[in-house]
Design a protein around this nucleic acid. Structure first.
Length: 427
RNA sequence: UCCGGCGUAGCUCAAUGGUAGAGCGGGUGGCUGUUAACCACUAGGUUGCAGGUUCGAGUCCUGCCGCCGGAGCCA
């Protein structure tokens, strides 16, 4: 029996295998908080109402000792869960010694050094279960719409965008890099399967030190043949809304543990406001930002823009110069790229970046030259424009930033079980 | 890489340049409904490292190391 099902067993004797989360006592009555991974339940041990060795086992119980308890399920308002277990038996499987994470506050550095243990605590419990829900929602969303999952390689011969710093590895005598995006491969798959998505880890070797950055993070990237930028934006807003609504429906308890104010999340439904880059620049200038047309938005700029709206906002048609070589230009203005970003509310910044892709062979060759990228490693990519090229579009959603936003967390490092940052490779 | 901040008990933090302390955790004892339980007692320290100033440095100065936050870049 797992604690999450305890309401089905009121009045019955059940067995729970778990760990001691905390204990309290008033002398002749002990309270054990036992967790089993699905929740925490209070167990009551009363002197003279259970075998003496069960009552006395309390003295040997240390925080995070593994225990198997047997008891009668009772409904009781005084218990944090609303249900508690009146113990009849208790077996210590392993006695933990000096568990380092205590009941009082800890610093983030200490907690991350003990991440393997910190995962047992209440807060990571809630965050990881929401992460699970987000990922399940992502897969369901694409499955329901007939997308095919295409796993893209993690070892790649070259950089996708040419600008970002990548992790370099030795690959049987030649250089290889850890992927920074599965997009180019997803494009190939889209021309084979129509609607596809890839979902995997992504690596950036940039020495970013902000609450929005990890060196290893997860990204989901749909790519659809015959999609234009408008189709892309529509898919993005439906996608984000679907994820948020699923978490609201299925992870109420977890959001409560995190004390997340869900009012912002409840408003997340299509359509999202859509503004052009030019309109976003106007917003910044009206708010006193000395912004130069042609620059990309910084973290504070994104916060100012997103604060104008009550749900995520889509900014589209960015200056082509600050965007990647593969993005198609706006036929009505060659200076602009058919690109779009989704900015999350409450200052969580960019969670989606996407675009319609350049599908014309000659134009794409020109773009490679403009970006001073080598032709040879992109020959296969150019093939996609040689054989049955079609308009197509896609985007990438950063999982950790999305989770940080939904959970209301200060830093993305809490959204992944074992975060990798510039100065952290352990545990 | 740049800018700012921090480093004191296992943990979270105090300590005018003048005897290094509290809470939690550990140990001992008490308590029949606790909610990070509470109460009493107790053990626990090379103040990140190396120099310097001073009668005297946790505190001031220099260098180094580690971490945190921000910027740039990005999801």
């Amino acid at each position: 029996m797992y604690i999450e099902d305890v309401h089905k067993y009121v009045g019955q004797e059940v067995i729970i295998a778990g760990w001691l989360y905390n204990k309290r006592s008033s002398g002749k009555i002990h309270f054990l908080l036992v967790r089993d991974g699905t929740n925490i339940i209070q167990c009551v041990v009363v002197k003279n109402e259970c075998p003496e060795e069960v009552f006395n086992a309390y003295d040997d119980l240390t925080q995070e000792s593994s225990i198997i308890v047997k008891g009668i399920v009772k409904e009781d308002k005084r218990s944090p869960l609303g249900y508690e277990l009146l113990l009849t038996d208790l077996r210590i499987v392993h006695q933990a010694q000096d568990y380092p994470i205590t009941k009082k506050e800890h610093g983030i550095d200490f907690l991350l050094d003990h991440r393997h243990l910190w995962l047992r605590s209440r807060r990571p419990f809630a965050v990881m279960r929401i992460r699970h829900e987000v990922i399940a929602a992502i897969r369901d969303f694409f499955n329901e719409r007939g997308f095919v999952l295409i796993d893209t390689p993690i070892f790649t011969p070259t950089s996708v965008e040419g600008t970002t710093t990548l992790f370099e590895t030795e690959y049987f005598g030649q250089k290889a890099y850890l992927t920074q995006s599965g997009q180019l491969y997803a494009e190939a798959a889209a021309l084979a399967f129509g609607k596809v998505y890839c979902f995997g880890p992504t690596f950036r070797a940039e020495k970013s030190k902000t609450r929005r950055h990890l060196t290893e993070f997860w990204m989901v990237e749909p790519e659809v043949a015959y999609f234009d930028l408008d189709d892309d934006m529509k898919l993005a807003e439906e996608f984000v809304s679907y994820i948020v609504q699923r978490v609201l429906e299925n992870r109420k308890m977890e959001l409560e543990i995190l004390e997340r104010d869900t009012r912002h999340l409840e408003r997340v439904s299509p359509p999202f406001p859509r503004i052009t880059y030019d309109e976003a620049v106007d917003i910044l200038r009206k708010n006193g930002v000395d912004f130069r047309w042609g620059d990309d938005f910084g973290g504070t700029d994104e916060t100012i823009i997103s604060n104008q709206f009550d749900r995520p906002v889509i900014v589209h048609r960015y200056p082509a110069e600050i965007k990647a070589f593969y993005m198609k230009r706006d036929p009505e203005n060659e200076k602009l790229a058919l690109a779009m970003d989704v900015l999350a509310p409450e200052g969580y910044g960019e969670i989606i970046g996407g675009s319609q892709r350049e599908d014309d062979y000659d134009t794409l060759v020109k773009r490679l030259e403009e970006h001073q990228l080598p032709r040879e490693p992109f020959e296969w990519y150019l093939d996609l424009r040689r054989y049955g090229s079609v308009p197509h579009a896609g985007f990438g959603l950063g999982i950790e930033r999305t989770i940080a936003w939904i959970c209301g967390l200060q830093h993305v490092r809490e959204t992944i079980p074992f975060p990798r940052t510039i100065y952290r490779l352990n545990p």
